[in-house]
């Protein structure tokens, strides 16, 4: 039931911070993450040297903490709270935008589980040292590969649809035509990330390096 509370609160600030954190730094990190991992499509050696380069950045732990872990923990936990405060009604009213609303929440929940698992096996279980051989070993397990594919698709959808939401919720796309344009932009980003992510998975699974001709 809609309420009439009039005491000011800080939810505007936190909601906007949640919205922004999805793009900067989390979305930006996802772009960097897919880019760096794309080196597997060049060669295992390039993948290893890129990973080593990232492992040797100065201030590694504080940088990871401030720009990756803290924002994701905040965005993820606050996102679960937003999910809980909504009351989806898509089954009775299966409009496309209503599905998008629900899928944004479901992919968020999938990502919550996926990110915990992913960080555990690739960051902590490896003691922060990633190699082609190590990751390819994980991909030998078909269940791992399946979860990777789900994670890639969920993250890509969540980012693409999130960009569309962001444009609406920050008043960038106001008129219906601008909303449609923002929707196409979000879909475009989602498709690009899906394709790039799946190619990376293929690179590890099939030991496939289509860009090795550059060497």
């Amino acid at each position: 039931m809609p309420g009439t509370a009039s005491k000011p609160d800080s939810s505007y600030f936190w909601d906007k911070l949640h919205s922004l954190s999805g793009i900067i730094p989390i979305g930006a990190f996802l772009a960097e993450h897919f880019w760096s991992n794309s080196y597997v499509l060049v060669s295992p050696e390039r993948y290893n040297s890129t990973a080593a380069g990232l492992e040797q950045i100065p201030w590694r732990i504080p940088v990871e903490f401030l720009f990756i872990w803290l924002p994701i923990v905040f965005h993820g936990c606050y996102g679960l709270d937003i999910w809980w405060r909504g009351k989806a009604n898509v089954l009775g009213h299966p409009w496309m935008s209503n599905w998008m609303y629900v899928l944004q929440r479901w992919t968020g929940i999938v990502l919550f589980a996926y990110i915990i698992w992913h960080v555990w096996i690739e960051r902590f279980a490896t003691h922060g040292r990633s190699t082609f051989a190590g990751v390819a070993h994980d991909f030998a397990n078909p269940y791992y590969t399946a979860f990777y594919v789900i994670g890639v698709l969920a993250a890509s959808f969540h980012l693409g649809n999130g960009l569309f939401n962001f444009c609406c919720k920050w008043g960038i796309a106001v008129t219906p035509r601008a909303q449609r344009a923002a929707g196409f932009f979000g879909a475009f980003v989602g498709v690009i990330f899906s394709v790039a992510g799946l190619l990376i998975v293929a690179g590890f699974v099939y030991n496939w390096h289509p860009f090795s001709g550059y060497l």
Partner: peptide, 18 residues
């Protein structure tokens, strides 16, 4: 509109307009 129940609660499900 920035207060409790304000604009920040709209999550763009776009059902209202339909």
């Amino acid at each position: 509109m920035m207060g409790p129940g304000g604009i920040q609660d709209c999550d763009n499900a776009m059902n209202c307009v339909k």
